[in-house]
Structure formats: structure tokens, C-alpha cells
Amino acid sequence: MNIINIEHIAKIYQVGSEEVHALADVSLKIDKNEYLAIMGPSGSGKSTLMNILGCLDTPTKGLYDFKGQNVSEMSDNELAKIRNREIGFVFQTFNLLPRSDALHNVELPLIYAGVPSYERKERAREALINVGLGDRIHHKPNELSGGQRQRVAVARALVTQPSIILADEPTGNLDSKTGEEIMLLFNEIHKQGNTIILVTHEEYIAKHAARIIRIRDGFIESDERVPERYIPQLKVQEEN
């Protein structure tokens, strides 16, 4: 069953008198519980595509069908609702609220979903425990390491139990070991039945996914299954 079905999507920016085709013509189907990596050179339109898939942005042309709903024709409010209920974002720069502690950051989507305070706190705490931050609940972002911040962001993306997780270079700001920890987390999430779409520059990160799409100049260049998927393993704890 398709969760996402986009057909002939284009995103055109007007810069001065010039038109920039961030996305020229993209069609794509994504099934439930897929693990998809999007690759491509800088400026090829990966983030643009992610933003459209995540309902943060609307395409200039084309059709976007999300779980049978026509997103291209939705109002701002409806898009906000979809983002809140159906989509979990993980960004390269974490994008946490700097003055709020981990718990409140994770709680935030539930506030906008109208979940009562008690349940909210409970679910946020649980999400933080699941990403291994049970002992950092009341730390502010600047009191956490990069990897820990990204875990908070993952917990925030998961807490609403969305249909898809969108991660735009989630390991881009992390060293390879910490990045690997985040990828391990994604693997767990995927195993639990979640759908994950991941943007990355790194070939070895992309290998964690089951399917890789390559974009160039706003077009899909290739769309392939990964023959030998890399399944990250829990490291022995002796490193600490």
C-alpha cells in the first residue's frame, strides 16, 4: 500500500528574472514500512523534495497524494495538521528549542495535537527513554552532546507515532561513531514498522536503507533496491 504517491512534481523558484527549477519533474511512490535514502549532489533538490514530502512546502506543479489525500490542494491549517499527526522531522541542525529542556521539546508536538498534560508528559518521557535519554530528560539542548541532541529530535519525531519519519542529513553534523548510533536507532524504528525517508551525502549511510533514489538537477536519476543492506549492530559496551 502506498503512503506517498507523487506525480510529475516540480518546484520552481523565481530568483530575479530567472526561474530556478529546484525540482524539475519528479514522480515517486513510497510504501508503508519502506526505508528509503535520497542521494544526490549539493543543490540537486533533495531538501526541496523532503520539504514537499513533509508538507512543509507545496509543489509548484504536480500531484501529491498522501494516504489517499490530495495534499497539493490543502490549506495551511490542514498541512499543519498533517505535519503534526503524520510526519516526524529530523533535521541536520537538530532544530530543538534552545531554552526548553528535552522533555518539553519532545512534548511540543503533543501540545499542538491537544494531548492532555499528564498523558503528554508520560509519552514524551517514554519516547526519551526509547532513544536512550531517560537520564537526560531535564537537560537543555546546550547541556547535551550533538548525538544526544539528535536523539531528542528523533524522540520528538516519534512521539506522535507518525506515518513517516523524514530525516534530512541527520548525521551531517555528527562524527561517524555518533552518526552510527543514530543510524542504529533508525534501524530499530524501521524494524518496529515505521516508514523512513532519509537524505544523505554519504554512501555508507545510504546503505542502511533498503532503497536508494539518486537525484540530479531536479530529476530522479536512478531508483534502486539495495542488494546488500547494512544492518547496524549493537556495539559491545566496552568502549565506554
Binding site: 491549517n77 495538521k81 505535519r83 503534526n84 499527526r85 522531522f89 532544530n95 511540543l108 508536538p109 499542538y112
Partner: peptide, 16 residues
């Protein structure tokens, strides 16, 4: 601005 962006990305509506 960035905070507003974050809030909107995770579901804050205009009126919120």
C-alpha cells in the same frame, strides 16, 4: 524566526 519555523514544522498552526 527559526523557533517559529520549528514550531510550524511540528504542527503549530498560523493562529497558534
Amino acid at each position: 524566526t527559526r523557533e517559529i519555523g520549528i514550531r510550524k514544522a511540528i504542527g503549530a498552526k498560523r493562529r497558534t
